[in-house]
Amino acid sequence: MTRYALGVEYDGGGFLGWQRLSKSGTPDDTSTVQAALEGALSSVADAQVDTICAGRTDAGVHAQCQVVHFDSDAARTPRGWLLGATARLPPAVCVRWCQPVADDFHARFSARARRYRYTLVNRLARPALERQYLSWERMPLDADAMHRAAQVLVGENDFSAFRTVHCQSPHAMRNLHGISVVRQGERVVVEVQANAFLHHMVRNIVGSLLVVGRGERPEGWIGELLTGRDRTVAGPTAPPDGLVFVSPLYPAEWGLPSEVTLPAAIG
């Protein structure tokens, strides 16, 4: 058996999220990204292939570079896996890179950080171009106020106020490495990195920051939410459209591409 790591890019708009809905997928199941990918890889291997990803994404959420690992004894080159799987995937999914890795590499547990980006158009009219990758806010937003308010979230904290009631994590402690809110013309971009995320954590943080950005709450309100740990008083969950899972990050020892490798000082 050889273990392989894949970098997978997908548009999540047409899928019911990453995780397959049945215990094992079928070759024609494209309801979830995992089912579609496993069907393609299984066809290339001529045997069942099961995958594990770095972080599951919800319905409608996209990925720039999701990292996946799988084991196979099929005699295929990394190029063969990449081209063969991509040829069998729907147009909204592709394998960007593939390489063999050590047997103890684990796409989820070997990762030390994850990065997300949330992008919205802030103008009176809804977007037409690239609309599947953008959220929309018609009310004027103070991106600088949103950025200042968000800094209280940095560090190891209990993020109960920003997790869905359906979150299955045994605890809400997460270490948020950094968060920024930047205006780029009509767009407001939120970028966040943490060791791991709770279910809907990024979208719930963005939803609360939008309340501050519209001037409906003061900047200090985000800190009050964090301390209060009460999801019911926080902002609404932001739509999934503007959310992209940028990538997980791994220590350099695994020899993965630079886009998923931590800087030496951090790794």
Rank of each mutant, 00 (worst) to 15 (best):
M201R: 00
Y10L: 06
S24Y: 11
E9T: 12
L37K: 05
A45L: 06
G255P: 06
C53K: 00
T237C: 15
T227G: 08
S110N: 03
D11H: 10
P91A: 03
N195L: 03
V101P: 06
G267D: 08
F15W: 04
Q132N: 15
Q168C: 12
D73H: 08
G55M: 07
D28S: 13
G13D: 03
P236R: 01
V202T: 10
K23G: 15
A234N: 06
I205M: 09
R115F: 07
V44F: 09
N157T: 05
A111M: 05
S43V: 12
L6T: 04
A150L: 09
A252R: 14
A36V: 06
M146K: 07
Y4H: 02
R123G: 07
V68A: 02
E216V: 07
V49T: 07
A85V: 05
L41G: 05
H200G: 08
G7Q: 05
R148F: 10
E216N: 12
L225F: 13
V212A: 04
H166A: 13
R79V: 14
L129I: 13
V8E: 00
E38F: 11
G25V: 11
H199K: 13
Q64R: 15
P251Q: 03
V33M: 03
Y250W: 03
I179D: 01
L226W: 04
S42E: 04
R108Q: 07
D230S: 05
E130H: 13
A47L: 02
G55K: 11
L6W: 09
D46E: 14
D11I: 02
V68K: 06
L6Q: 00
G84C: 11
V121C: 11
R138T: 13
N175C: 15
L262R: 03
R108I: 01
V93G: 00
N122V: 08
P263K: 02
P27Q: 12
W221K: 00
E186W: 13
A59S: 12
W254S: 02
E156C: 12
V152L: 10
Q19F: 04
E137K: 09
A107T: 06
L256R: 00
R20A: 11
T51L: 01
V101S: 03
V101I: 01
V212N: 06
V61M: 07
A252I: 14
A54C: 09
L176Q: 01
P91C: 06
A125Q: 13
S31L: 13
G12R: 05
I179F: 02
G7V: 03
R117M: 08
A161K: 00
S31A: 15
L176A: 01
S72W: 03
L249P: 09
T232E: 11
T261G: 10
S208F: 05
L141K: 11
R76K: 14
R229Q: 14
C65P: 05
A128Y: 14
Y10G: 06
Q48I: 13
D11F: 03
R108A: 03
G25E: 14
L83V: 15
T26D: 12
A196H: 07
Q34T: 07
G80C: 10
E224R: 07
A128H: 15
G7E: 00
L134N: 00
E253G: 15
R148A: 10
G12L: 05
G185S: 01
A265Q: 10
K23T: 15
R3P: 04
T227Y: 14
A54G: 12
D46N: 15
L210R: 03
E186K: 14
T164H: 13
P140V: 04
